[in-house]
Amino acid sequence: MTDRVLKLVTGNRLHDGTVVYFAGSGAWTPQIDDARLVEDKDGAALLAEAQAGSPPHPAVGPALIEAVRDGRRIVPLMLRERIRAFGPTVAYRGD
């Protein structure tokens, strides 16, 4: 895993709330590994790009988060964001 902290943009998809990541060119993806990852200094520009476009915006609450690259995987730094990406960490008992 590289230690270099990078930035990406995440939000929740408007119509169903699914956690999504900005993939560039106006696209959002539920796969964090497909997120567009930029250097820290380019974060503000990425967020501005993610927020652009006429309403309805596909994602609610776009926000910058920190992540590192682990091979081909992208892993958020904060536990909260790891749980959003890969959680919940507990099995649920639906049927």
């Binding site: 929740n12 408007l14 119509h15 169903d16 709330g17 699914t18 956690v19 006429s54 309403p55 309805p56 915006h57 609610v60 609450g61 909260r80 749980i83 959003r84 959680g87 919940p88």
Partner: peptide
Amino acid sequence: LAGQLSEDEFRSLRLMNGLYLQLHA
């Protein structure tokens, strides 16, 4: 959903009906 209401405008309306936005959904 049609983009006529922003999230800021809609948030209190959905909350008045018990709809929150949590981590996953």
